[in-house]
Nucleic acid binder design. Structure first.
Lengths: 210, 210
DNA sequence: TGTACATCAGTGAACGCGCGTTCACTGATGTAC
DNA sequence: TGTACATCAGTGAACGCGCGTTCACTGATGTAC
């Protein structure tokens, strides 16, 4: 991954107060965003505790010392990364489900969530499923952030259900989806893994077949 | 926790080969079992990575050096602890469900699994739910052991379903239960937590109401 | 009876390592005059 | 034009700490004779 150096993106602008800025605001914000995006992926792949600050920065061609110019602590990064991850995934799920005709939108969501692709690529998937038990032991602050985004997920489910004119409990549906995905990921052989996905998917279809 | 010292439980027996044993076999096995049992609880409360060998041994009034007289590695302990945890929980669930009259046994299982008690006391609860995302990233060996015990869990569900004369997919049911419990544990406030438990429970009842 | 020796669960210092975090610094770029 | 100085994202050595693991050892208990 060739990373543009600080020198390349450096720009000079003058603030209205007459103070000097050697680097443009965009440069700083870009680096910040790159760190968050990388963390969002790596946290989902290797767990939050499984990704060190140093190795994360190295991934971006940076050194660990610079991390604290962007974040107060790893926990602050975690909060931003989790929000970015949910942004990505919820948007992707929403776009995907929206393509289906009414009556099939929710089913589309379930299909992508309980797909082998989602199972095998946690880095771009549901943050809650990827780190479920770890989140359980995170700080109140982090758990609240996740709760908030899970509420967004529930809203999406309910919105889709409304469009489909289907009556389901969004919480029960989300429980099934995350549980099915998680158990599928625990399974070592592909057959049992797919069986969990399929069984859960079937049960949901039975539930939302109104 | 007052722990009986090595000296107290020490006994002398002579093997048939004429070799000497200063400590009885029971003593060694007892210590071994105590470590496994403590690990089974602590791993579920704090996560596998969240429990160090040293602090675990300290809990039992022992020092960390002695650990390796009992286990080749922390991974070996993990495997034994996970099996002990599943033994405990599956037995408890089975006993509890068996008390119900036919037609209500499976519902009893679901009730205890999705209870606030289970939510608030992971140390004695389902190992898979307590460490779901962490297990996902464990070695093949550990994941296979968990898979094996999850199969036992599925067997229990199917057995109960048969007694109830109910037709359900055990995998879908287990997905709902673990997912519901996990999401409930993520929630910071009790109301939302209970809602997840209740919503999942209701959906299951809808599913198994044959 | 006493002396020499064997057993072995448990001890605790030490190992290398990676963690999150701090901080004096560098160096490319600019302005001031 | 040249010299002095300011800015600040990023550097890298260092901090204390806990991790899993190793290993020479201790000490309570026994047998052998």
């Amino acid at each position: 991954l060739p990373i543009t150096s600080a020198a390349q993106t450096k720009q000079t602008i003058e603030t209205h107060q007459g103070q000097y800025m050697r680097y443009s605001k965009e440069h700083r914000a870009n680096t910040h965003a790159k760190i968050v995006t990388a963390a969002a992926t790596h946290f989902r792949e290797k767990g939050i505790e499984g990704v060190g600050v140093a190795s994360l920065m190295q991934t971006l061609g940076l050194t660990h010392g610079g991390f604290y110019a962007h974040f107060e602590s790893k926990e602050c990064l975690t909060e931003e990364a989790l929000n970015t991850a949910f942004d990505q995934t919820l948007k992707r799920f929403k776009d995907y489900a929206s393509q289906a005709i009414p009556g099939h939108k929710l089913r589309r969501l379930v299909d992508i969530y309980l797909s082998n692709e989602h199972r095998n690529d946690p880095g771009l998937g549901c943050f809650a499923a990827a780190n479920a038990s770890e989140i359980t032991r995170q700080s109140e602050k982090i758990r609240q952030s996740v709760s908030k985004r899970l509420a967004d997920f529930l809203d999406l489910i309910e919105d889709l259900a409304n469009q489909d004119n289907i009556n389901v409990d969004s919480r029960a549906l989300l429980s099934m989806m995350t549980g099915g995905l998680l158990l599928s990921r625990i399974m070592t052989d592909d057959r049992h893994a797919s069986e969990f996905l399929q069984a859960t998917s079937n049960a949901i279809n039975q539930l939302i077949k109104y």
